[in-house]
Write a protein that binds this DNA or RNA. Structure first.
Lengths: 358, 358
DNA sequence: CGCGCCTTCTACATCGATGTAGAGTGGCGC
DNA sequence: GCGCCACTCTACATCGATGTAGAAGGCGCG
């Protein structure tokens, strides 16, 4: 280590010249080729250290036809669920020697389509894509010629590997949790009227199933529409439901942001949670363990989703099994009971899940 | 559009063959070179569309020596502040034709150093780096030979452009806000004992200044240490302070996560906010507008930080002014008053109380 | 008419690495 | 002594684009 830090310059040629070998030998050393005399290897390594040489990734990419980068397309990082998902994907990718390039679609249909055809695909070896707007009608556009793994529940049987959770079942369990606590007038926040695909539709379906199994009617007045699943819309929808005068003793927010928004609206009106109204969310973002009250929610197995997606993508990239039919992986979920449904007796988390830092 | 979607194959050679021109002419068309006969241009463009040709970025990168990618190194995306910052940086970069590659350092010193020397630097044209562990003693390592912009307040006068806010002043204003409300026993959460650089030190310094200007003593018992600025540590520190029996009528969380954790702990103990204790945070993450109560905080001008950083980096990359001395940009801040200090009269994103059911 | 200039396009070298083919050495079995 | 294999290394072509130099044709100007 001495002449290092020269920036652009140093190439294999210079290393080769200094070590007195051919450039291919340098390449072989760098890539751990087996048949190299120890003495030669040492000389090359010394030259590399001396010159501060680093492989030029662009050149390697060109030659190898791979970049070692995978794309991750999500709506927005400012939505905690996607930020936490991105965190997990980055960790999983890193563990496998991959780098992640994030693209934000802003839940805009056109931008979601761009992702599928964009320039960027040449920068990456594959894509993990979580669409919010595209649906089965876009099957054609999804028929891309590069490795892709889809996340979420908007597209089933599509032309790609797919990782998702059992939304219907999870929503049923969430609703059942409220029913088990004796709640009977359970409102939903975040429904998308008329939609038949996507998280909203599936979760509402699970909600209906639970009610029906319990022999309870499904009251349309309890189903609150909310296009965007943000805190703000959750609060607005909660208020609309309250203003409507309909009787409510529990709320199922179809994601945590909506539920937290609802919590906010309830707090503003001095309505006791869970005394008067119990609230459950969906996603288990870190914030739910720290809201007041803490929020009961459905944990979708974020880590599992991330590692599974990266593994599937990597398998496609490496074509371990060419022509392997597309698979669909359903991940596990779990109900995390907290104060917003169980009251003060709920175990209040003192420490956040996962996320290890020193 | 017809034969498209072939994946790997199509190169300029094929386009050139189809259009009956040289490959350089195709390149010229793609790059908007001026002197091309309209008829030729059309033929080439038709061929490009026909074959679904897309430039191979790796090849272009190799030739041009630039990748169009900038790195963004942050501690963790699961920390809302950094997720929102990443969101802003991605948007700003996109507007300038750049792509962002995110690297998580997990606030681990070694990983922060890796970022400065790692392989990845060859993938990117420059780096926006927000260190949490490195400090002035690492000036040597920061002396990198690629364009870099530093964020945050750990390093001043370092060998790079630097974007930061006026932490001392902002913390002074936050403390003043509490003083203006008549609070006199203001606790701090998130101090780092013994540190003289970094957000913690600077914000505590601002806190001290405000107290001193008001002629109040600085009581060490009110200064709560918290290494990690997470919700969990905020809650723990709050509890420790409460248990200590020291008199407290306000809390200054050195970031929002700490303040939200404190809010959580106060709620658990049924302590009224702001009735008994007022709370102010720092960062203005989205969550603060929806917590219960909503959290007063200091908005650091995230968008401004992001766009400034990207602009500075781009200027370095393009070497518009070679040898230009490193600049330091101080961004604006603003106190956002909400319920946690102002009480119910604070403008809440809600609606006046109305009829309530069951 | 000759010269230079503008326009349009092409041929070729080049960016920095890796794959392929093969040269050269030495050891081993028969 | 011959053939074969294992080891070690090299020369060269190649990935797909872009920069350079210059050719070819047409036009204006003195």
């Amino acid at each position: 280590m001495s002449t290092a830090k020269r920036g652009s310059a140093v190439t294999m040629h210079e290393v080769a010249a200094r070590a007195g070998v051919s450039i291919k030998t340098v390449s072989n050393v760098v890539n751990g080729y087996q048949y190299i005399r120890p003495a030669t290897k040492e000389r090359v390594e010394a030259a590399i250290a001396d010159l501060g040489y680093q492989v030029n990734i662009s050149a390697r990419n060109l030659r190898r036809g791979r970049t070692g980068i995978i794309g991750l397309a999500v709506p927005e990082l400012s939505l905690p669920y996607f930020a936490e998902l991105a965190d997990s994907v980055i960790r999983a990718a890193e563990a496998r020697g991959l780098t992640v390039l994030i693209e934000q679609t802003g839940s805009v249909r056109e931008r979601e389509l761009d992702v599928l055809s964009g320039q960027r695909r040449h920068l990456t070896d594959g894509l993990i894509f979580s669409p919010l707007e595209l649906g089965p009608q876009d099957a054609e556009a999804l028929h891309v010629d590069f490795p892709m793994v889809l996340l979420g529940e908007r597209i089933f049987g599509g032309p790609a590997d797919h990782v998702t959770m059992n939304n219907v079942e999870a929503a049923r369990a969430a609703t059942q949790h409220l029913l088990d606590l004796g709640r009977r007038r359970i409102a939903v926040i975040g429904a998308h009227e008329g939609e038949t695909v996507g998280s909203a539709a599936l979760r509402v379906q699970g909600y209906r199933q639970a009610l029906e199994e319990a022999g309870l009617p499904v009251d349309p007045a309890l189903i609150g529409e909310a296009g965007l699943w943000h805190r703000a819309t959750g609060a607005e929808t909660m208020e609309r439901l309250l203003d409507s005068g309909v009787e409510i003793d529990a709320v199922f927010g179809l994601n945590d942001a909506l539920a937290l928004g609802a919590l906010h609206a309830l707090h503003a009106r001095r309505i006791d949670v869970p005394g008067q109204i119990a609230v459950i969310g969906f996603d288990d973002i870190e914030e739910t363990a720290y809201s007041s009250p803490t929020l009961t929610t459905v944990a979708p197995g974020r880590e599992q989703i991330a590692t599974t997606a990266v593994d599937l993508l990597l398998a496609r990239i490496e074509e371990l099994e060419p022509g392997k039919p597309f698979v669909q992986v359903i991940t596990d979920f779990e109900i995390i009971g907290r104060e917003s449904t169980l009251g003060e007796r709920a175990p209040v988390a003192a420490v956040p899940p996962a996320s290890q830092s020193a």
